[in-house]
């Protein structure tokens, strides 16, 4: 009797553990399929032309140079604006206002923004930049990306600063250093790798961001470095080319998708390595 009951429990356990193995195989095989297809389709179009020629008209051959350049430019603008704001705000949360009500609210709002739908951020920038300016522009695109960068950097900066032991701050303060010096010379330095991790993760996040760019930076078929004009970006070009009926455009879309994925993966791997190093310290 007792043995039978034990057997039932064992079988039940084995059944559910079997299900969890099935779930793992099921979940991971989708991802293998997606990445496999991406590699297979994308590598076919990976050549020098991809990086040296403009997006073509249907039927011509060409590359993604203007889209790559546009993405680079907008990412750089976004990071240049978003990183300092994010770092300072994160510093405020961790160093000055750690237990204040204001910090609590800012933390809450920041975490909401962190996972808010990016398309809503796009609508926001459309209302405050595109409409008053009267036209789509790379500035607006960069602004959207910056609003995505800021919450990511705030979160990681705060987390990393909180890892720094208080004894370090106290020691510096005991030497007579003002608060600003303690932060700049001691805590920022100690948390440097972690803060850089946050910036890398933010870049990874915006590299594939498509939806809000559709109605802020729009797209541009030609070579343009004018931030006041619509600008092509890799994700938007991929979107347009993928839904087009032309085979060569679709090929470019696959290659662009592979390019973005590789960028994102490499950035996240570097970020992880950096993070692991900070943890070891």
């Amino acid at each position: 009797m007792n043995n039978q009951r034990y057997l039932r429990r064992r079988i039940r356990s084995a059944f559910f553990m079997g299900l969890s193995v099935v779930a793992t195989v099921f979940g991971l095989s989708w991802l293998v399929l997606v990445l496999g297809t991406l590699l297979y389709e994308g590598l076919g179009g990976f050549d020098f032309r991809l990086f040296s020629e403009m997006t073509p008209a249907p039927g011509d051959d060409g590359g993604l140079l203007n889209a790559i350049m546009g993405s680079l430019m907008m990412n750089i603008f976004a990071v240049a604006v978003g990183t300092p704001i994010g770092i300072f705000a994160g510093t405020y949360l961790a160093e000055y206002g750690r237990h204040t009500k204001l910090a609590f609210v800012v933390r809450f709002v920041n975490d909401i923004l962190l996972s808010a739908p990016s398309i809503v951020l796009g609508l926001f920038i459309y209302e405050i930049i595109v409409l008053p300016m009267g036209h789509f522009s790379a500035w607006a695109g960069s602004a959207v990306l910056a609003t995505i960068v800021i919450p990511v950097v705030v979160r990681t900066t705060e987390n990393m600063l909180l890892l720094i032991p208080n004894t370090l701050r106290e020691a510096a303060a005991a030497l007579g250093a003002p608060r600003a010096h303690v932060i700049k010379q001691v805590t920022w330095r100690a948390a440097r790798a972690g803060i850089v991790t946050g910036v890398l993760l933010a870049i990874a996040r915006i590299s594939g961001e498509t939806a809000p760019l559709l109605f802020t930076a729009l797209n541009n078929q030609f070579w343009s470095l004018d931030p006041n004009a619509p600008m092509a970006s890799l994700p938007v070009v991929i979107f347009q080319f993928a839904i087009s009926p032309y085979r060569d455009w679709q090929q470019l879309a696959w290659s662009g998708a592979l390019l973005i994925t590789l960028t994102v993966l490499i950035l996240s791997i570097i970020a992880r390595v950096l993070e692991a190093r900070t943890d070891q310290k």
């Binding site: 000055y96 709002v109 600003a180």
Partner: peptide, 25 residues
């Protein structure tokens, strides 16, 4: 020292302003 603190404080307010701006827009 004071300015540094002010900068950090206003950057924290930027987060709140963004949120309010999104709702308003």
């Amino acid at each position: 020292d004071r300015n540094f603190r002010r900068i950090a404080f206003s950057c924290a307010l930027v987060i709140l302003a963004m949120f309010a701006g999104i709702l308003w827009a």
